[in-house]
Amino acid sequence: MNHYQSLKTLTYAQIRRILRIWIQTIVPPAITTALYFLIFGQIIGSRIGGMPGYDGFSYVEFIVPGLIMLSVITNSYANVASAFFGAKFQKAIEEIIISPMPNWTILIGFIMGGITRGFVVGIVVVLVSLFFTTFTIHNIPLTLFAIIITSILFSLLGLINGVYAKSFDDVAIIPTFVLTPLIYLGGIFYSIEMSEIPEQWKLISMFNPILYVVDFFRYAMLGQYQINPFLSFTLISAFTASFFAIAYYLLHKGIGIKE
């Protein structure tokens, strides 16, 4: 049995889906990001100045990595959650289940879809940001790695959401009520070292996993950090490995897909 061929097929099917609905998958992040840059970067950003801990960078330069991560996280999550639930809803998931593909192939195939969308959207956001600012990337391989590992992590979470979802509402609940607040409070628009932030809030922020993801990526792009990058990398890797194991277990048990 040629598992490489099955994996390639599933990955290609996921990419075809992203491209088929490009107006939903690729255009919105470009528009949203342009608006963020226009309002927070150009209009308000010029009055904010720099962020503590990021000397030598303007506010608009500070928010570039955050906005890239915002798009990568939300898009990789949404891609896998909606692709998996959509396949369940249309019963197309049965095409995959009745085939001899092992569960790891199914899991990686869906993750590849999430990585692709995260990556494409990340590039779109970088291109949009170039209309508003210029920047030099501190460590290109690390930046690419950070995008990939973040896409994997949030694709896995999206898949778990898709496995348990029974309606389209279930696919929207977690991103709206959990993911979005965590992202916005994860240091995209501000540094947690700002004196205006109360100490208790700084402490609470340390329990927000998105903070580590954004800070790790900001280190890769700008070369400056608030949290030790090694600690961030360890936490991100541990979360990714744990969610991979959970997602694999759910597929193995057929939860949400088999009766």
Binding site: M1, N2, H3, Q5, S6, K8, T9, L10, Y12, A13, R16, E95, I96, S99, P100, M101
Partner: peptide, 14 residues
């Protein structure tokens, strides 16, 4: 045809 070819791919058919 995409649907059929994709199904074949899941079974390892090139």
């Amino acid at each position: 045809q995409d649907t059929i070819v994709t199904q074949a791919g899941y079974y390892g058919v090139d």
